[in-house]
């Protein structure tokens, strides 16, 4: 999945407003996958959402110091989200390979269901973290053109 382009970045301008645009764009991108990804069989969108979480995590790892503890909390949330969606993806990849090994297939299905529930709960709980991050970014420039 290609990352959405972020407009209006200026190499000569201070890091902070540029960083705010980037973080906002990655956060918007992540959120855009939620409505479909929260349906259990949407494995392709869940995979795309994992990549979006990874992008948000890494941009926050780089520019987090510009946005304080809210950015640290959002980075940790993105890392957890990436982790749980990654494990769901691992189950999806392994399932067809486990053809004929019924106990393994059953275990993978159960594991996927459990991880999916974790993902849904985590996404619900993380909404306050994203909102806090957004408020912190708010002071730094206009909304991105993502």
């Amino acid at each position: 999945m290609k990352a959405r382009q972020v407009g209006g970045l200026d190499p000569a301008a201070p890091l902070r407003p540029n960083a705010a645009r980037l973080v906002r764009a990655r956060l918007d991108e992540l959120r855009s996958f939620a409505p479909v990804a929260l349906q259990p069989p949407a494995s392709k969108t869940q995979h795309d959402m994992r990549i979006a979480a990874k992008r948000l995590r890494y941009v926050l790892e780089i520019v987090g110091p510009c946005f304080g503890p809210e950015a640290d909390a959002a980075r940790d949330a993105a890392r957890r989200l990436q982790g749980v969606l990654g494990e769901i993806h691992d189950c999806d990849v392994m399932l067809p390979r486990a053809w004929g090994i019924e106990s393994l297939r059953e275990r993978l299905r159960e594991r996927r269901e459990r991880l999916f529930r974790e993902f849904v709960d985590f996404w619900r709980d993380a909404s306050a973290t994203w909102a806090a991050l957004e408020r912190t970014l708010g002071a730094d420039g206009p909304k991105s053109h993502a």
Partner: peptide, 22 residues
């Protein structure tokens, strides 16, 4: 863990930060 970037400053130009981080 990711290493700290020495001299990282949110008010310095974006391109200067780019060189440091990369």
């Amino acid at each position: 863990r990711a290493r700290e970037v020495p001299g990282f400053d949110c008010e310095e130009p974006f391109a200067v930060a780019a060189a440091r981080v990369v």
